[in-house]
Design a protein around this nucleic acid. Structure first.
Lengths: 346, 346
DNA sequence: CTGTTAGCGCCTTCAG
DNA sequence: CTGAAGGCGCTAACAG
C-alpha cells in the first residue's frame, strides 16, 4: 500500500497524488476528488518514514527514555497533556534497556531519530548531555546536572533536606541513606541534602549506613537487605527514589521488621506506586508530570525558532507524609545512645 | 552526520561503510578497523529511518496508543519488562489525542509506521480492529471485543459482577453505574456484569442512576455531579474505570458527601493512581502490566513466523478492597426502603 | 494543470 | 576486497 498503488489506481502520477495529499496548488478539482476517493477507498496513509526522509518535517516530537518505568511514564503523561492541541504527535522511544548499552543510549537514540522522523526531542534523565547540532532538545533531570541544554529538573537538595529533617524531627539518629548511582547528579544532590541536614543537626553519618542502590528495584534489593541485617541496624532509611524505598519495604517485610513501628522509610519522587504500598510511602514529591509539560513548553518555543528566556527550570519539591514514618522506637540502639547522651541535639 | 560523511572521512565508499556496520563479509581487517574508528570518533549512528526504508527490518516493536494515560502507561511498563533481553527496541506512538481524530487513530498510526520502521505492533484499546496484511499485530483490550486479531484482555464481566456483589453485600441497594462509552466492549461488559449481579440479587436498576462518563476524568465530572446531586441520590457508585471513580470522589468532596461514610465508590482497572486517593479506592484490578507482557509474548512468536496456540488470552480480574466502600449508611432512602421491605433480598 | 526528474540516507546486488 | 548503480516511498523542483 504505497503512493504508487494509489497513483496507478487513480491513473495519475505519484507526484499528483503527493500534491493532493499535501493539498498543494496545481491540481484540477476533478482529479483531486478522484484521487481522494481512491485514497480513502484503499485506506492509504503516507509513510511517516519515507515522508520524513524527504521533507525533514514531521510534526512529531520524540521523547527519549532509557526504559518505561514509573518515572518516565509519569513524564509521558505530563507531556501527553501538554502536547494535546498543539498539533504535534508523540513518539516515545526506549533505546536503553534492550541493547544492554545502558550508557550512551541517549546519544544513540537521538542520532537514530533526529534529522528525520522527529522535529524535536525531550530526553529523560540522560547521563551524557552534549549539545547536538541537529534538532532542538530539552533535557529532563539530566544526570550530569544542567549544562548546555535547556533543562527541567526539581530541587533535589531541598527535597533531601526536608526528608532528612522529617526523620530527625521524629527522633531518628541512626539514619541510612540508600543512594542511586554515584555518577548521577540527582543522586549526588540527594546525598548532599541528607548530609547537610545531618550535619546541621550535629548527627554523625555512619559510613556503613550509606549504600548504593542503583535507582532500580532489583538493584536495591541487595543493599537494602544488607542494611537491615546489620547488627545495629538503623531506625530509618532514606532512599534516593521511590523504587528503592519500595525495595526497602519489601526487604523489611522479608526480614520481619515492622514499618513504621521498627523502621521508618522515606522515598523520593512520589510516583503513583508510592501511595500503593502498605503502609503508603512517605516521600519527597517532585512534580513529575509538570516537569514533562514544562519541557514541552520549552521545546515548542525552541522548535518555533524562538529563544527561551529561562533555559533552566527548577521546580519545587515537597515532603508528602504518609504511613512509613513514625517516631523512633523505644529501646533501640539509637534511642539508648540518645538517652546516654551519645549523639544528637539536646 | 550520514554514512556519506563517514565514507568520505575514512576514504572509502559508502558501500564499504555499510558492510562494516552490518558486519558483512568482504571487508579487509585494516579497512574495517579504520572505518570503525571513524565511526566512533564521529559518533555516527545509522538513521533508523533510512535503514528501515531500505531493509524492512528494524528490530523495533511499535506500541500504538491513543494517548499516554494511566492505563496505556501501565501497559508500557509491562511491555518494557517483557522486551528487555529480546533484543527488540520499543517505539510508543501516540496518534490519537493531538490530531483530534480520536476515531480511526489506530489504523492511521499503523499505516504510517508499518511496512517500515516497526516489525510488529501492539495496539492498545483500538476501536476499529481490522486485520492488517502488513506486520504482525496484537490487540490489547480492543473496544469491539476480540476479532480476527490475536488479543489480550481481562475478564470484564466477572470483575464487574464481583464489584457489584461487594456493594450489595455491604447492604447497598441504590447503586449507580457510571459507564465508559456505549460503543466500547469493555464498558458494555462491565455494565452487563453490573446488571447481572443486580438481577441475581433481585435489586432493580434505576435508569436514572446509569450514566455515561467517557472513561476520562474530565468527561466524567459532569455525570458524576449529576448523579450525586439527585434528590434521592445513590448510596454507592460503581464506575467503569478508575479515572471516573476518581472523578466521582472529587465530585463527592465537592458537594460535601463523605466517602465512604455517606457514599461508597468502586472503580475498575487498579491503576497506580487508585491507591493514591483519600481514602484509597476500592477497585477491580486488571493485571495491566501482565497484559502488556503477554501481548509481547504473542507478538514475538508471530514475528518469528510461528503460529500462536491461543490467539485470545483472557486474564483474570480480582476485587481489591480499599477505603472507599463501607456498609450502607443508616437513615438513607435505600436503608429506609429496605426496612420497609421495599427492595432486596431478605 | 500534469508528469518527469532528482534525490533524502541507506542497503544490496553486481562488476571491477 | 572494493566501488558503482539501483531502489525503498516520498516530495520538490522543473518541464511539458
Amino acid at each position: 500500500m504505497t503512493i504508487n498503488d494509489v497513483a496507478r489506481t487513480a491513473g495519475v502520477s505519484v507526484a499528483t497524488v503527493s500534491k493532493v495529499i499535501n493539498s498543494r496548488y496545481g491540481v484540477a478539482q476533478a482529479t483531486s476528488e478522484r484521487v481522494q476517493e481512491v485514497i480513502s477507498s484503499l485506506g492509504y496513509e503516507s509513510s511517516l518514514v519515507a515522508r520524513s526522509l524527504r521533507s525533514h518535517r514531521t510534526n512529531v516530537i520524540g521523547i527519549l527514555v532509557a526504559e518505561f518505568e514509573p518515572f518516565s511514564t509519569e513524564i509521558l503523561k505530563g507531556v501527553s497533556q501538554a502536547v494535546a492541541g498543539t498539533g504535534y504527535e508523540l513518539l516515545a522511544y526506549s533505546g536503553g534497556g534492550a541493547s544492554g548499552n545502558l550508557v550512551g543510549w541517549e546519544r544513540r537514540s537521538l542520532s537514530r531519530l533526529s534529522g528525520t522522523l522527529i522535529d524535536g526531542a525531550v530526553i529523560v534523565t540522560p547521563t551524557v548531555v552534549e549539545v547536538h547540532d541537529g534538532v532542538p532538545v530539552v533535557a529532563i533531570d539530566p544526570h550530569a546536572g544542567p549544562s548546555g541544554l535547556p533543562t527541567v529538573d526539581s530541587d533535589n537538595l531541598a527535597g533531601a533536606v526536608s526528608a532528612t529533617e522529617h526523620l530527625l524531627a521524629l527522633g531518628h539518629r541512626r539514619i541510612a541513606f540508600l543512594g542511586g548511582r554515584t555518577d548521577l547528579e540527582s543522586s549526588r544532590l540527594r546525598e548532599e541534602g541528607f548530609r547537610l541536614a545531618m550535619e546541621r543537626a550535629q548527627v554523625p553519618v555512619d559510613p556503613a549506613l550509606v549504600r548504593v542502590g542503583g535507582y532500580r528495584r532489583e538493584t536495591a534489593d541487595r543493599p537494602a537487605h544488607e542494611i537491615l541485617e546489620l547488627a545495629d541496624r538503623p531506625t530509618a532509611v532514606f532512599a534516593a527514589n521511590d523504587l528503592m524505598a519500595i525495595a526497602t519495604l519489601e526487604a523489611a517485610a522479608d526480614v520481619g521488621i515492622a514499618v513504621p513501628g521498627d523502621l521508618s522509610v522515606v522515598g523520593f519522587d512520589d510516583v503513583p506506586e508510592a501511595a500503593a504500598t502498605t503502609p503508603p510511602l512517605t516521600t519527597v514529591a517532585q512534580p513529575i508530570q509538570r516537569m514533562g509539560s514544562e519541557a514541552i513548553g520549552l521545546l515548542v518555543e525552541l522548535m518555533a525558532g524562538r529563544e527561551v528566556p529561562t533555559p533552566h527550570l527548577r521546580l519545587p519539591t515537597r515532603l508528602v507524609q504518609r504511613g512509613t514514618t513514625a517516631t523512633v522506637p523505644a529501646g533501640t540502639p539509637s534511642s539508648r545512645a540518645r538517652a546516654a547522651g551519645g549523639a544528637a541535639r539536646p
